[in-house]
Design a protein around this nucleic acid. Structure first.
Lengths: 132, 132
DNA sequence: TTCCTTGCAAATCGTTTGCATAATG
DNA sequence: CATTATGCAAACGATTTGCAAGGAA
């Protein structure tokens, strides 16, 4: 199924590329809407799904019950602050090695890896220190 | 909040401990129901959430839109077959090192790690080979 | 008697889908 | 013209929740 151009999709994609955090569908919707007020949430979902299926963006499930979307499709992992909910990138050099190791000890074919760390981010730690 | 005993919770916990796969709430429900027909799905959800919050079991979000539950709370990772949907354990020696490395390069406090591999499991690979 | 837990059903909420219409190639 | 994309609203499905009644400490 060939993909035809649409302004909506272009805006969604562009928006995602400008962000280093990992917005949810609704955040994408709210933002794109400012430039294209008629866009519907359904269209946002449809395009995010489409782009993710084609591998142009990445769908993340970090465990807060909402899907997040990442314009960076390179192999990297994430950190989720259980306090403020922010999702940030976390670069680790050993990911490739890990992938190789996993593949070696496993009798299926591994295609993708997803690693997520959870804890409290620096900013939230500061907040709490001040408070107590 | 102190926790009082309930037969339902006990059955849910026991069931989870007998399983090496990672059942969903509904699978837990269907199974526990055979021994305790009156139990409700809501109770299953409530207890799974309660046990997970207390760290006695683990809630897994592997990206299929449904929560899975794991009686094994030790640090280990998972493999999800994108063909049959099965979720299996995958032991990796480097997880502790990875945790330490992540902690070192990150200015917050890391508490938990979750790694999931995706691909096609051995059995599904065989199936496809036979077919083609 | 206190208060945690249950079953039931309704509510919630993120996401998907059907449909008639609009836009692309 | 054929096909893909859209907006809208309704449908969906997993999970949560309010409530009155039951059970544990």
């Amino acid at each position: 199924m060939a993909m035809k151009y649409s302004r909506q999709r272009q805006l969604i994609y562009n928006f995602l590329m400008t962000r280093k955090d990992h917005p949810t569908a609704d955040v994408v919707y709210q933002n794109v809407r400012q430039e294209f007020p008629n866009i519907s949430l359904g269209t946002v979902y449809r395009n995010l799904t489409l782009l993710a299926d084609r591998g142009e963006i990445q769908r993340l499930q970090v465990g807060d019950g909402v899907d997040h979307f990442d314009g960076d499709t390179s192999r990297h992992c994430h950190f989720v602050c259980t306090d403020c909910g922010n999702v940030t990138d976390l670069q680790m050099d050993c990911l490739d090695d890990m992938f190789t190791m996993a593949q070696r000890s496993f009798d299926g074919r591994i295609e993708k890896q997803m690693t997520c760390f959870y804890g409290v981010c620096g900013e939230c730690l500061d907040k709490h220190t001040v408070k107590s």
